[in-house]
Design a protein around this nucleic acid. Sequence first.
DNA 1: TAGCGCGTAAAGATCTTGTGATCAGGTTGT
DNA 2: ACAACCTGATCACAAGATCTTTACGCGCTA
Lengths: 274, 274
Amino acid sequence: MTPEGSEAVVGGAPAAQRAGNRLRLAVLDRDPGFMLVLSNRLDALGCEYRSLTAPATVDALVAMRLNALLVDLAVMGPAGWEYLERVCSRLPGLAVVVCTGPSSVAQRVRGLRLGADAWVTKPCHAEELICVVEAAVRRHRRAEMPALEAAAMFGEITVRPDLYQAYANDMSLELTAREFEILHLLSGSDRVLRREEIYERVWGYAMAHGDRSVDVFVRKLRQKLRSASPRWSYIHTHFGVGYRFTPEPEDAGEPELELVTDPGPAELDTAFAR
Amino acid sequence: MTPEGSEAVVGGAPAAQRAGNRLRLAVLDRDPGFMLVLSNRLDALGCEYRSLTAPATVDALVAMRLNALLVDLAVMGPAGWEYLERVCSRLPGLAVVVCTGPSSVAQRVRGLRLGADAWVTKPCHAEELICVVEAAVRRHRRAEMPALEAAAMFGEITVRPDLYQAYANDMSLELTAREFEILHLLSGSDRVLRREEIYERVWGYAMAHGDRSVDVFVRKLRQKLRSASPRWSYIHTHFGVGYRFTPEPEDAGEPELELVTDPGPAELDTAFAR
DNA sequence: TAGCGCGTAAAGATCTTGTGATCAGGTTGT
DNA sequence: ACAACCTGATCACAAGATCTTTACGCGCTA
């Protein structure tokens, strides 16, 4: 498994995944004719792609910042199944489409069960194949879409996705790229986010067991948030679960009437009663 | 099975959320043989499905609370395209799989571009078809996650899966992660749950013989529930069996006009009383 | 009434998180 | 190309919070 020439095509992309609306695809296949036809279609669509002739490591795939992976299992023989499983489990956010020669129902079922999003049998039309890939990517993207770039304000903090920065009283918090991504993710959701979830959506792949990266970044964020807006608290810990973002004024001393601070159950639009 | 989607909406509701992990599928097809084979597989998987012989309106589909729609475009003829487009655009959270007879590349491309998640050509194997549907749903679920877990109310208690917490009168019960998991599990099921069952579903592995952890947690839960909602009892012991969750007003002497909570005949402890 | 299951309570073990520091790798400016 | 600088990944440790285990006595069933 050689991570040949795995430098990312585009270096500067600050965001891991919000890179763009365009398809970023890697094709693992050794059929020159197939690649030629496919390349023509991909070029015509102005799609960024990279062709591989040997399986890339998971880390290499991460570095490529892909939306989708198109793979011919024949390239790897029996080891292909393991590879498919590893890629799908480590990169749950990556659309994986298998395009390979004649196969049995059992094989296709196995591939799909391992996490592949689609299975296309060769020979096939490039146009159709690309549609299948796009359909798979479309799904994943729907999750990212709501993270549009509208500025939002929480307490004294303003989050500016267009500037990749957050502010308090017109003063920048001087967040680094990753810090901002985490703040942006948290602030865009009013529920508790588990660490694994945060990691997966920011780093782009599954979190290793015992990784404390999220904690460390939350600490840095809290530090900067506190020094910019001392009277508010924003990121709340849910022990054993994860973190939740909600601007709350720091109850500084006098206990006023009740702390109705909990916005939770007040608005159960979807509550059921029995 | 008849297309009356009412039970899903009005009914005992808590089922709606618990079933969140399972596939809820509607099949729009007129081929009896196809349906027969497919039904067998779906039954074997314990999957909830509904078969339709005529296109349902978008609103009807919403009422069915589906994860996926499997459709044979042949049922509608040329109008099928328009239907496909409308369903896909109005219900972006629904996985739509087309399974129809022989088609041209152009038709398949059109279907996928209109928003279908996959296109399977008949004749096909039921097993494979279901895998394709599951792959589409799997991908979808990632995007729909936040909306899936709805809040639920029992007596004076509100359970908020999105906040990993329960409330009574806008006040948090301060449940720990594990306490919440158990309450969530219990409240989602009307029947008596054996200790082993609870343990296995919360801890994730089999309970050791003689382990009292479940009892201890039930005690803590009862304590917090009682102090937050003294006039109700929620977790009931079934001696020698396990526990059952049902909100019941504490009949402290005079029977006031209570909710329709009728403990009498409703006490049929069946698995389907809902 | 005897035996077992269950409620209750507390102490100890274990797991989580907060925090500061260090190290390696990449980026920027010259 | 080189070097200063910045960022992100890990580690170790401490403080808490939570979970498990154990013990005892009462209530339920037979």
